[in-house]
């Protein structure tokens, strides 16, 4: 989870671009890791990440600066994604996963994204928040509103599941 940004928030409230860049750099992995497992589409994730930061900036006045910034931003990202899903559901627009960006393909290439997305939604979220978003288990629990023990179990079981699948694919 990104560190506290107490000293930066005041400057951000003045819409200082450099400050935003710092915060954006520190938080973008977390925001991605929250949105992507929910919507399952990279281009859509990009749009919703932008919406998240726009909403964050427009809501900054309501942010209680006694509280940590990261979980607040995480909540916005989650709500933006849920909001999108609700609208998509309402309009009966199935959200289909699309993978438009060329994946890096090392020599031992295995489509990790496909494997991740074969996990159930909770496990996808926990794995991506933990590994890509670099969030602590505690912050993941807070963001997903689940007990920490559940989050930890989901994470371990997801990795074991992945290990099992990768082991099978490596051998085939």
């Amino acid at each position: 989870m990104p560190k506290r940004f107490d000293d930066l928030i005041a400057r951000l409230a003045d819409h200082d671009n450099e400050t935003f860049e710092i915060i954006h750099t520190e938080t973008k992995k977390m925001v991605f890791a929250i949105i992507y497992p929910l919507v399952g589409d990279i281009n859509l994730t990009e749009d919703l990440m932008q919406d998240t930061y726009i909403k964050m900036l427009r809501s900054l006045e309501s942010f209680d600066r006694r509280r940590p910034f990261g979980p607040w931003l995480a909540q916005i990202a989650k709500n933006i994604a849920y909001d999108h899903l609700r609208h998509a559901k309402r309009e009966q627009q199935a959200v289909e996963a699309a993978w438009h960006i060329q994946m890096p393909k090392p020599d031992t290439y295995i489509d990790i994204d496909r494997l991740i997305r074969s996990l159930d939604k909770d496990k996808q979220a926990v794995v991506l928040m933990r590994i890509v978003g670099e969030m602590s288990f505690k912050d993941i629990a807070s963001t997903l509103d689940r007990p920490l023990g559940t989050i930890y179990s989901l994470y371990k079981n997801a990795l074991k599941e992945l290990r099992h699948i990768i082991g099978k694919e490596d051998n085939s």
Binding site: K28, A33, M49, Y53, D113
Partner: peptide, 23 residues
Amino acid sequence: IENRIQSTYRPIVEKIANHIDLI
């Protein structure tokens, strides 16, 4: 496995995050 996941997604994050232009 963690390392593989990291190396898969981080370039993606960098790429799409650069598209965000709040200006």
